[in-house]
């Protein structure tokens, strides 16, 4: 996916979805799925990294301003965008064409990629909100469950989009 109007709309759509709907969801009483990371994760890491960082920064800042979380989402989204290339470097094998596009990955690897970065995202959000590592460790089950639900919604929304695109 290139940087175009469609991508900006997708980013805005996920941000609004996060703010207007997912932030009000309390699954099992305390789980709020984090889905705003999806548009940031699907961008290929080799494409205009600075612009990706700016998009991550402003989308995180937008969330922080709306839900009064200081700079938590800004820090997390920037961190995810900058470090996601590590996953692709890990996939690089000598003699093989480097993988830079998420859509070139098979389903299983893509799920692992989502799980890793959603988990990191939720973990960092908890850590930056509390600034107490003992508290975050005590909340690890919640973070795992939240990762699962976030992944579920992301896959579900992605599937909906893919169905629409295929149609």
């Amino acid at each position: 996916m290139n940087f175009n109007f469609k991508y900006i709309l997708l980013l805005l759509f996920f941000l609004l979805l996060q703010i207007l709907w997912f932030n009000h969801i309390k699954l099992l009483g305390y789980i709020t799925p984090i889905i705003f990371l999806y548009p940031l994760l699907i961008l290929p890491p080799d494409k205009n990294e600075n612009l990706q960082l700016f998009l991550a920064f402003f989308s995180g800042l937008f969330l922080d301003i709306i839900i009064h979380t200081g700079g938590v989402f800004t820090a997390v989204s920037v961190f995810i965008v900058y470090t996601k290339k590590i996953f692709f470097w890990y996939l690089d094998k000598p003699g093989k064409k480097p993988v830079n596009n998420l859509f070139e990955l098979d389903f299983f690897k893509k799920i692992i990629y989502y799980v890793i970065y959603i988990f990191i995202g939720i973990f960092l959000i908890a850590l930056l909100q509390s600034f107490q590592i003992s508290f975050v460790i005590s909340r690890l089950p919640y973070i795992f469950i939240n990762t699962f639900f976030s992944l579920f919604f992301i896959i579900f929304i992605e599937y909906l989009f893919l169905i629409r695109e295929n149609k």
């Binding site: 960082l53 922080d64 900058y82 930056l128």
Partner: peptide, 21 residues
């Protein structure tokens, strides 16, 4: 420059966190 940009943005985010928390 992307590393510098990343560090700068994280710095701003942390300032915002410190001011808000």
């Amino acid at each position: 420059n992307s590393l510098l940009l990343f560090l700068g943005m994280e710095f701003i985010a942390f300032i915002l966190i410190l001011n808000n928390n």
